[in-house]
Amino acid sequence: MTQSSTTHTNKSSAAKTYGTAETVQAPVYSRAERKARNATRRSRLGMVIYLVLLLLPIYWLINMSFKTNTEILSGLSFFPEHFTLDNYAKIFGDPTWYMGYINSTLYVVMNMVISLLVALPAAYAFSRYRFVGDKHMFFWLLSNRMAPPAVFLLPFFQLYSSVGLFDTHIAVALAHCLFNVPLAVWILEGFMSGVPREIDETAYIDGYTFPKFFVRIFIPLIRSGIGVTAFFCFMFSWVELLLARTLTSVEAKPIAAIMTRTVSASGMDWGLLAAAGVLTIIPGMLVIYFVRNHVAKGFALGRV
C-alpha cells in the first residue's frame, strides 16, 4: 500500500469515529497502532492455541494417572469418573519404585556438581586466554556433546566394570559428563566473555590471587550463568536413558528404566505407567520454576 492511500484511509476512518459521540479514545490511535493491537491479539490467540496443543498430551497423561485401568480401557473421558490415587499409592508404597526416583535424583545432582566444578575454571581459561591447541580442544569437547551415546555404548559397560564402578550412581554421573561437561563449558564461556576483562585486571592489581578473585568476585558476577548451566546439566542428565540403563542393574537403576516393569503378562498397567510418567515431569518443572528469570538468556547459551 502506498503512502498517500494509507493517510487517506487513516483520515476517513478517523472522521468516522469522530462521528460517534461516546468514543473519546478511539481517535488517538493511528491506523498503525490499531494494526499493532490487532497483531498482538492475533499472537495472543496463536500462543494460546499452541500452548493448548502442547499441553494436551501431558494433560492426557495426568488425566489417565488418576483413573483405574478398567476406566482407562472402557472409554475416553476428559475427567476421571472414578477419581483414584491408587496408582500413586502403589509407587510411593513400593521401594523398588520410589528408589528409582531417588537414584535418578542422586546421579543427576552428582553430575551437576561435577560438571560445574570442572567446567568453571576451563570456561574461564577459554574466555580469557589463548593457548596451544585451544580451538581444537574446544572443538573436541563440542564433538563429544554431539556424538551419539550409542557409539560409546559398547565399551562403556566394560570400562565401568573394569574400574569397579558398575551399578553405582557415580558411574552414571561420570558417563553423563561426556555430554554435560562440554555443554557446561560452552554455556559458561559465553557468559564469561560478557564480563569485561578490566574487572579481572583491576582485581589482580588490588592484590587478589587467582583463586580468591575467582570465588569472591568472578563467580558472583556470573551467578545467572551458573544457574542456567546447572539447569541444562539437570535437563540433559535427567532425560537421558540409554547410558543410565546400560550402566546400572539394581542399586542405581533410574526411574526411567524401572518404568518398563509396567508391561507384564496380564498386559500393560496403563494407570501405573501414567502415574510414574507424571512423577518424572515434576522435578523438571520445579527446576525450571527456579531459573525462569534467567532462562531466556540461558537458552541462547549466553551468546546473543
Partner: peptide
C-alpha cells in the same frame, strides 16, 4: 515455563506419552 515443559520430560516418557 509452559513452553519449556516438554524439554524436561525424560525421553522414554515422551515416547510413552
Amino acid at each position: 515455563i509452559l513452553v519449556a515443559i516438554p524439554l524436561l520430560i525424560p525421553w522414554n516418557v515422551v515416547g510413552t506419552i
